[in-house]
Write a protein that binds this DNA or RNA. Structure first.
Length: 593
RNA sequence: GCGCCCGUAGCUCAGAUGGAUAGAGCGUUGGCCUCCGAAGCCAAAGGUCAGAGGUUCGAAUCCCCUCGGGCGCACCA
């Protein structure tokens, strides 16, 4: 319908141009919006005001000329000119019926545009280091990424969801070493645990698993573990170096265990944590199509290939023994090192390779969902892809969604989190406390790049204050109407209802029609802008409209006839849209509560 | 110091590429159940959109400055 009206306007303007009423050299794009208020009709365009200046006419006069030039159309009931020069379209009731019947026919696929099936979008999210359980910060990234992926799927794109597993590098070595140190302690070894080691309780669980597999066969003399190890940082004397300390222990660990046994500890540790993360996310309704291992990337030699390509293109130079990428040529404010003077590739180099890897699999768009504390990283990544000459029909090849931290509250009181003490709140704890539905909803109900005040007490309260319950309650109420129907042996006749649904005329019904009609537009915009919070907003509005309607209107009446059927059809469409929205947000739609 | 994000009702936040009278929820006050789920609804009060300038027919939205907050500025990952 929207496209149809845009065409009408387009044709009218072109017609006026051909009649020399308007200049032929106009550069314009028709904008059409759903109106906020019913008195402004269903759709509104500002085209007359936009073109007024270029045409040397006042907006209302121009609007009148455009309206006169619009061909009569059986879907348009009335066209008004209002305010400073808006052209408002009132749509025939028949088109409202179309929306309802489309929703009921297409169900969960309503809003799906098959023409987008030819585009593949890769979305990478969570991707946190597998060094421990997910905490509440990762939870917001997970909920946001998953909802964006669902949105893109819902409007027709092919979507590939990916988790980048940072399983190479120093942190993982420290982690594996920490496990082994705890293992030694469990057999009575006595020493001070490194301040920079991983101390969480989850390490002890991994130790148990390790012992089941190897018993005491990996025990080594503790003196040798600390042989030639520089002193750890000492807070009281402000001496020592925690980094050098742990690195030396890691090195000794690798020597003492030997490659095979070290690998055994490493793999068992990694596997244990990844399994935990996978289960955690799975329970949270967050699924991935691929878990991509950083180590796989390193063994494939992609970095060298990428470096060579950038070099050939002239975007690399050497300085101080290191190899630099000319990021400043592509909008970054500093050049960046890809290969250090010791020959090692930087994390950035690995990440560029990873993005090349993704690109070469044949995609039209990559999306990275980052914590917003990494926003400084974005320009260099985009610079690298620009330098490689990547482009896409969908605009930039890489879009980055930044997610701000969630701050937890118990009512007024802020929940303190500290990674250092190991006392951070895990995602699992949060889920257990407030439930998956509330967590998924609360995480995305604010714009992703805005701070989120997450009130745990509110999220688990079973009251009207809690938006999740408010929305789910609306859905359950609709379900309840259909249950009542069955109990009273009244037949629901969709066809009969549809036939007369255009006669529903109360303000409640009109409001619901308008909301349903704008749904397609909503998910399209929300998807393309990567803004799932708009769905949360929409859902609340829709639920409110429904509750108002419910309070004012009795649905099941004896001998209700076709008008009763019409109302039931409307409810059915509302229910379907609620289910669709909730599904995209990863929230359940219970039939009773 | 430089860069990015932000400042909207008492509180938490929406405000689509600039559009019509700036909207919700909570909180406050006052109403609505012999009736399909009151976990609901209705009404009232509450605003110089941080401040000042500019662009525009039109600015919460775009540009400049000031003030106030958050986050980044590694041959770490």
């Amino acid at each position: 319908m929207k496209d149809h009206i845009i065409q009408l306007l387009q044709a009218a303007v072109v017609h006026l141009q051909s009649q020399d009423v308007l200049p032929k050299t106009l550069d314009f794009q028709i904008q059409l919006t759903h109106t906020k208020s019913p008195e402004h009709g269903d759709y509104s365009s500002n085209i007359a005001m936009v073109l007024a200046k270029a045409c040397g006419k006042n907006p209302r006069e121009l609007a009148q000329k455009i309206v006169n030039a619009i061909a009569p159309d059986d879907q348009v009931k009335k066209i008004d000119i209002a305010g400073p020069g808006f052209i408002n379209f009132f749509v025939n009731a028949a088109t409202v019926v179309d929306v309802i019947s489309n929703i009921l026919q297409e169900k969960e696929r309503f809003g799906f545009d098959p023409s987008r099936q030819s585009y593949k979008i890769n979305i990478e999210f969570v991707s946190c280091n597998p060094t421990g359980p997910l905490h509440v910060g990762h939870g917001r990234n997970a909920a946001t990424g998953a909802s964006i992926a669902n949105l893109l799927l819902a409007i027709g794109f092919k979507v590939h969801r990916e988790y980048y597993v940072n399983d190479a590098g120093r942190q993982m070595a420290i982690l594996a070493t920490s496990v082994w140190l705890r293992y030694l302690q469990s057999y009575g070894a006595s020493f001070t645990f490194p301040s920079n080691g991983y101390k969480g309780d989850y390490i002890l669980e991994i130790v148990d698993a390790l012992k089941q597999q190897v018993d005491d066969s990996l025990i080594k003399p503790i003196d040798e573990v600390f042989l030639n190890v520089p002193a750890d940082f000492d807070e009281t004397q402000n001496s020592g170096d925690k980094e050098a300390h742990i690195d030396a222990i890691v090195s000794n660990t690798q020597k003492l265990l030997g490659q095979d046994n070290y690998d055994l500890v490493f793999e068992l540790t990694l596997d244990s944590i990844l399994t935990d993360i996978r289960e955690d996310l799975g329970e949270f309704g967050v699924e991935f199509d691929e878990w991509f291992s950083e180590r796989e990337l390193l063994t494939s030699g992609t970095q060298q290939r990428v470096l060579n390509k950038l070099d050939q293109l002239g975007h690399i130079y050497e300085q101080d023994g290191a190899r630099w990428f000319r990021a400043t040529d592509f909008g970054d404010d500093k050049d960046r090192v890809l290969q250090r003077k010791n020959g090692q590739f930087t994390y950035f180099a690995n990440d560029v390779s990873y993005h090349v890897f993704k690109y070469e699999r044949g995609i039209d768009k990559m999306i990275d969902v980052f914590g917003s504390d990494h926003h400084g990283y974005v320009p260099r990544m985009q610079a690298a892809l620009k330098a490689l000459g990547y482009s896409s029909e969908l605009g930039d090849i890489l879009d980055v969604v930044l997610v701000q931290f969630a701050i937890l509250y118990h009512g007024e009181e802020r929940v303190q989190m500290s990674t250092r003490s190991g006392s951070f709140v895990t995602l699992r704890e949060l889920r257990q406390e407030v439930g998956n539905d509330a967590a998924r909803f609360f995480y995305v109900m604010r714009k992703a790049d805005q701070h989120l005040d997450f009130d745990l007490d509110l999220a688990k309260s079973q009251s009207a204050d809690n938006p999740v319950f408010y929305i789910q309650y609306a859905h359950a109420r609709i379900c309840s109407v259909y249950r009542q129907l069955q109990e009273q042996n009244i037949v629901y006749d969709e066809a009969a209802g549809l036939a007369v649904i255009s006669q529903l005329s109360s303000s409640y019904e009109q409001a619901l029609f308008r909301s349903l009609a704008s749904y397609k537009d909503l998910i399209e915009r929300a998807a393309l802008a990567y803004e799932p919070h708009r769905l949360a907003q929409y859902l609340r509005d829709l639920a409110h409209q429904f509750h108002s309607y419910y309070n004012a209107q009795r649905f099941i009446v004896e001998n209700g006839g076709e008008m009763m059927q019409a109302r039931l059809v409307l409810l059915s469409a509302v229910k379907q849209i609620m289910v669709n929205c909730l599904h995209i947000l990863g929230v359940s739609a219970p039939e009773r509560m």
